[in-house]
Computed example of a mutant assay.
Amino acid sequence: LELTEGVAVDDPRSAIATMDQLFARGVRMSMDDFGTGYSSLSQLKRFQIYKLKIDQSFVRDLGVDSNDRAIVSAIIRMAQALGIRTTAEGVETAEQLEYLREQGCDEAQGYYFSRPQSAEHITPLLLQRRLAIGG
């Protein structure tokens, strides 16, 4: 289940209670667009978050902006220290993907891999990729 920062930050106590209940039932949550809102790190440590999704606004200029590289690296390191997985959004180039791999980002999504697909086209695409990697 994906949440935006704003949902969790607007009413942290209620959000924490709800997340704890969902976590107890086996639901894992991702925080989408992390770093773009007004997140509180003191609240983040109490949320039952499985994954932080690094917003594409930080990924877009990884090749040319040292500030974006520093922010992405810091998010990944913080998540690792908290035992939280990371997914980078908006990956469009091999250079971006390589940097994210070097930093230890767990997953990436974006046009580099595929444009959005309709339901009828996604199954053949996934089967083709599975065969290509030997699965």
Rank of each mutant, 00 (worst) to 15 (best):
A79P: 00
T123N: 15
V27M: 04
I54V: 11
G134P: 11
A79E: 00
F23A: 05
I133P: 15
L1K: 05
E107P: 14
V59F: 00
D10E: 12
R13T: 01
I49N: 09
T86L: 07
Q48H: 14
E89V: 03
L82K: 04
S39T: 02
S118C: 13
A81L: 08
R77P: 11
L131T: 09
V59T: 10
I75M: 06
L131D: 12
G35A: 09
F58M: 06
A15S: 04
A88D: 07
R129E: 13
V59L: 09
A79W: 04
L100E: 10
S114Y: 10
L131K: 13
R115H: 14
Q56L: 14
L100W: 05
A108L: 11
Y50A: 06
P116W: 01
T4L: 07
Y38Q: 12
A88N: 07
L82V: 00
L125D: 13
L97Y: 04
T123F: 13
Q43G: 09
F58L: 08
Y38H: 10
E95R: 08
T93S: 01
I49Q: 06
V64N: 10
K51T: 06
L62D: 01
L41D: 07
I16E: 08
P124N: 13
R46F: 04
V9H: 02
K45R: 13
Y38P: 00
R85Y: 07
E5A: 04
E98H: 15
R77D: 14
V64Q: 13
S73P: 03
Q80E: 12
Q21V: 10
A79R: 07
D32F: 01
D55K: 08
V91S: 07
G63Y: 04
S118N: 13
L44E: 03
D32Q: 10
G63T: 03
V7C: 07
T86Q: 12
G90N: 10
S40V: 01
K45M: 06
E92L: 04
L44S: 04
Q128N: 09
P116I: 11
K45H: 13
D68A: 02
F34H: 04
A17S: 15
A8D: 05
R130T: 14
T18A: 09
L41A: 08
M78V: 04
Y50I: 02
Q96I: 04
D65A: 02
K51C: 14
L1M: 10
F113N: 08
Q128I: 08
S114N: 13
Y38E: 11
D55Y: 02
